[in-house]
Design a protein around this nucleic acid. Structure first.
Lengths: 209, 209
DNA sequence: GAAATAATTGAACGTTCGTTTTATTCTTGC
DNA sequence: GCAAGAATAAAACGAACGTTCAATTATTTC
């Protein structure tokens, strides 16, 4: 056989991306074979090479687009306000929302860095650095203005990102907590962490057990 | 050839464990082949099977011993004091010290869970659960006694562990910060996070840039 | 110093891997 | 309805994988 009825390059490529994200998030990049991925898509392994030149490039594309989407997403959500507390709150809320919705691709982007070649790795790290820089800037301005009490801006930024990204490790949709509730709880912790809690009032969501 | 002069089962097994931890931490379990591991040890691949029945069992052994060591380590360091703040401080300091010293095996234990079989996975998760329970207990007692201000004990415990374990992602020995300095900075953040900072005085180490 | 045991080699097994090649069928534009 | 291309199947490639096995040498035991 050859071309199958109803086959469509655009749909196939989208299906490959989605299946790849799910499979790699679940089993890991090295553990997922091109044949397994093809089977999930409902296609032969050779067909994958029409859309991606090789396995690593597929991984790289997924990760790069994840990071680009993250930066775009924050660029849209970035508040006009200059108030460090409002900006930090927006950052945390946006970060958690984005990462919960894209749990799988976040997992891939965080766990599979070591499967990238040197060049591809540094490309991803550059994008990630740009995102983290946004948080550092907020923290620095807040520390300077006295809104935050921070010992070490770089270290605090890493700690906060580590903490709020950790949501995806345990969060499952359809459980006792909604995304908004989780985001508010983490926001409270972040605000206390930066010594900014006293002055705060924001749309709190009801109960945390 | 066959048995080599000076060969010693005990030394070889130790060398295998160490090489395995380093290689797996660096490249990932799936990406490290038995031949590569054997070459690092200076032995043929077949020799590995005298010490471990198969590849996964080697991984499992490394992870199980890491977790057992962690529990033992905390059991020894656990303070007699009933004061929640003192206990939390001891927990954080001990956690960071342990994980920084054992960065590589921590990396393996955190990243390679998905390479374990169901039974081995649940064994490791049981050990990890026991450790996390210690932190939850401290937080709960502190919350009850009014020493801490905590919305959700379970969620806070996960957030703290995520944050303080994150040290190993960026920490490299011989850089600007010593382990003790890092531990103190993270302790400060943890204490603020739990709303416990006000009442605190402890052996602070000098500068954080 | 012979017998028993411990430690390792070297070769081989069947399987699976990522990838390439070639041929075939569907779809689209004219 | 025909030519051009896009999309896929099917088969094959060499290399690498985890693992096994028989043979061989070093060490220990008595």
């Amino acid at each position: 056989m050859a071309r199958t009825t109803g086959s469509d390059g655009g749909r196939t490529e989208a299906a490959i991306r989605e299946a790849a994200i799910n499979l790699i998030a679940r089993f890991g990049y090295e553990a997922v074979s091109m044949r397994q991925l093809a089977a999930e898509v409902g296609v032969q392994a050779a067909a994958l090479y029409r859309y991606f030149p090789n396995k690593e490039d597929l991984l790289f594309t997924l990760m790069r687009e994840h990071m680009e989407d993250l930066l775009k997403d924050w660029d849209q959500a970035r508040p006009a306000s200059a108030d460090p507390q409002a900006r930090l709150a927006a950052f945390v809320r946006n970060h958690i929302r984005f990462h919960v919705v894209r749990r799988h691709s976040t997992h891939v982007s965080n766990m599979e860095l070591r499967s990238l070649s040197r060049d591809n790795l540094s490309h991803i790290l550059r994008l990630r650095g740009g995102y983290e820089k946004e948080l550092r800037q907020i923290l620095r301005e807040g520390a300077d203005s006295g809104a935050f009490r921070i010992d070490d801006v770089g270290l605090t930024a890493i700690a906060i990102i580590q903490m709020i990204t950790g949501v995806i490790v345990w969060f499952r949709p359809d459980e006792r907590l909604s995304v908004e509730e989780v985001a508010e709880t983490y926001l409270t912790m972040t605000m206390r962490l930066t010594g900014a809690e006293e002055i705060r009032e924001k749309p709190h969501v009801h109960a945390h057990a």
